[in-house]
Design a binder for these strands. Structure first.
Length: 438
RNA sequence: GCACAGGUGGGUGAGCGGUUAAAACCGACAGACUGUAAAUCUGUUGCCCCUUGGGGCUACGGAGGUUCGAAUCCUCCCCUGUGCACCA
């Protein structure tokens, strides 16, 4: 029989970092009952596999789910593979297009690869709502829809607003919360977790579950939405302010360091297991003169360790310090290999597969007039340092391009030998470019 | 089906026959400043081509049309919203 920590202790742990707990007394009761009976609570959070990757924002909720695991309860990770086809209202007053089945399957798979960096695989029940909705008939769906009314739906602020503003609201969007409610009924769980943006859906869930005769209305716990790197809007891929948990360590490090000092504390709070008092202590130090950058580096280290391990985190720190603090070239800069081709005395660059080592084109030296003239804007574009030739030209004009440390503003440059290597920096991007014969 | 209101660049949103690659704001990018911070200031912000300046090509839901000239006017179509009708 499982044993659980004292109820008060559990409540404190659960409450940490939670935005809201609806029916906390009920939660206490259930914890007491489970402790007495040795029966773990069933707690679930659903995820729509709508994006191919999870980002740090999602991990706030995952962490909360993990907290229940830590206490000995059962965590249920529900993949909304069926509901993803409906498409959750975005809350951005725009109807989101539903995904195709393949996209959903693919996304679900990557989710599973990623979530166990946080959750304990052994103690996680993974479910999919296609289990029940897959064989749900139209009649049953209509029966489900009959459990709720339009005016109840319009209580949702987003719907209400769109309705008033004469903006489109698709029927399928209204179905979404209903389906979610059915999920929670099928899972027979004690509590449902979700972001604060899900509150409406979570509340509908309780009522639907009850309408279907679930024993007790479940407990709802919401977690705050993590602000994205801009510090304003919630982290989301579509706002481009996210940090993906599958991103390479160096990328992550850079993004975390670019977060404002203010936001950094929020990240400490929601993305690490450091206690509030520990965070307070750091804040205090920062106030009395310690460079906040130090804590930011620490934060980056911690987060990267979670997803890539300690060694990678250390490497990322070193690389970052090298590139940005000492203006040196990190060990393994990304390399782009370009080929030089000539056509009637004119030279041009083409992309070349960098994959299998150096191209075997012969080495060459050039002198005087024979030195090939190549366009810098083309080079930058092909190397991925500019979006287009026009963009590259602008950057050249703005003195944003440095080749081997020297500002390059002319739009051509002469090669001296083949292969030729440059370290090119444009803003905060840095790449090694190798030009070889094609 | 009818009526009315709408559909503009990454977003919001002006323009309503020419000087409009399209105001303004936001975002994004770059420079200065720094701690690669943030804030601030400055510049840039469709694509392509040629020797720091210039040239060309696309673009305002879609297709046609009127005009020397259209995002701006006309016709048809598509999409969204609202109201009415339909639901025998």
């Amino acid at each position: 029989m499982a044993t659980f920590p004292p109820v008060e202790e559990q409540l404190e742990y659960i409450g940490k970092g939670a935005a809201e707990i609806i029916r906390e007394p009920e939660l206490r009761e259930r914890l007491e009952r489970s402790r007495a009976s040795g029966k773990p609570l069933r707690v679930y959070a659903g995820f729509d596999p709508t994006a191919p990757d999870l980002h740090l924002g999602h991990t706030v909720l995952l962490r909360k789910l993990k907290h229940f695991q830590d206490l000995g309860h059962t965590a249920i990770f529900l993949i909304g593979d069926f509901t993803a086809m409906i498409g959750d209202p975005t809350g951005r007053n725009v109807t989101r297009p539903p995904l195709t089945e393949e996209e959903i399957t693919r996304n679900a798979r990557t989710y599973l690869d990623q979530v166990f960096k946080i959750l304990d695989r052994e103690r996680t029940e993974v479910r999919r709502n296609s289990e029940w909705f897959g064989k749900f008939g139209a009649a049953e769906f209509i029966k489900l829809a009959a459990k709720y009314t339009v005016s109840q739906m319009l209580e949702r602020e987003d719907f209400h607003k769109r309705f008033q503003d004469e903006k489109p609201i698709s029927m399928h969007e209204l179905l979404y919360p209903l389906a979610q409610g059915y999920d929670s009924f099928m899972l027979q769980c004690d509590a449902q977790l979700g972001g604060t943006d899900q509150k409406f859906n979570l509340m509908v869930s309780r009522e639907i579950a009850r309408a279907y005769g679930a024993a007790n209305s479940e407990i709802v716990l919401t977690t705050p939405l993590l602000e994205g790197t801009d510090g304003v809007q919630k982290m989301s891929k579509s706002y481009g302010n996210y940090i993906g948990i599958a991103e390479p360590p160096r990328e992550m490090f850079g993004k975390i360091m670019r977060v404002s000092d203010e936001l950094m504390w929020r990240y400490w709070e929601l993305l690490t297991d450091i206690s509030m008092s520990g965070i307070e202590a750091m804040k205090q130090q920062a106030r009395s003169g310690t460079n906040p950058m130090l804590f930011k580096k620490g934060l980056a280290q911690r987060i990267i360790t979670d997803f890539h391990g300690e060694a990678a985190a250390k490497q990322a720190l070193e690389d970052w310090e090298k590139q940005f603090q000492r203006d040196e070239v990190p060990e393994d800069v990304e390399t782009a290999v370009l080929g030089l081709v000539s056509d009637a005395g004119k030279f041009d660059l083409v992309p070349l597969q960098s994959a299998s080592g150096a191209p075997r084109a012969a080495k060459k030296e050039f002198a005087g007039e024979a030195r090939p003239l190549v366009r810098a804007d083309k080079m930058l574009t092909l190397a991925g340092l500019a979006d287009s030739a026009s963009d590259a030209q602008r950057k050249l004009k703005q003195n944003a391009v440095r080749i081997n440390g020297e500002i390059q503003s002319a739009h051509t440059l002469k090669l001296e030998s083949l292969p030729m290597e440059f370290v090119v920096r444009v803003g905060r991007k840095m790449k090694k470019i190798v030009i070889a014969g094609a």
